[in-house]
């Protein structure tokens, strides 16, 4: 078994595990960070597939900007909820669902 195949195997397993983790994470912030990590791993996958153009786009848009957009949206949710939460102690997590 050559090393290239082993790297591909680890990458494929990593992508699946990260995708699963980012879907089942109940904490929004954790889910976003896992999603960004997934984007970076997918970038490596594109490089392994020889699609360097797609890899650059994935790194810049998929991992970088989408991550920034998700974090901005998360902060917006959090700042809207904070006045309500302050009375009951409040927490610094992204929380789960917003009703």
């Amino acid at each position: 078994m050559d090393s290239g195949f082993l790297i591909d195997l680890v990458l494929a397993a990593g992508v699946l595990i990260l995708a699963w983790l980012s879907l089942v994470a109940t904490n929004l912030f954790k889910a976003i960070v896992l999603f960004i990590s997934l984007g970076l791993l997918v970038t490596v996958v594109w490089v392994r597939l020889g699609a360097v153009d797609v890899a650059i786009a994935e790194a810049a848009i998929g991992a970088g900007l989408t991550g920034a957009l998700l974090l901005a949206a998360w902060r917006r949710l959090w700042s809207q909820r904070r006045p309500v939460r302050d009375a009951s102690g409040g927490d610094d997590s992204g929380g789960d669902n917003v009703s």
């Binding site: 360097v52 153009d53 786009a57 970088g64 920034a68």
Partner: peptide, 17 residues
């Protein structure tokens, strides 16, 4: 070589953010 408008635009947008 690999590169182009979308990649460059996304990078510049990163700088803007």
């Amino acid at each position: 070589a690999p590169g182009g408008a979308f990649q460059a635009g996304a990078l510049l947008a990163g700088a803007g953010v």
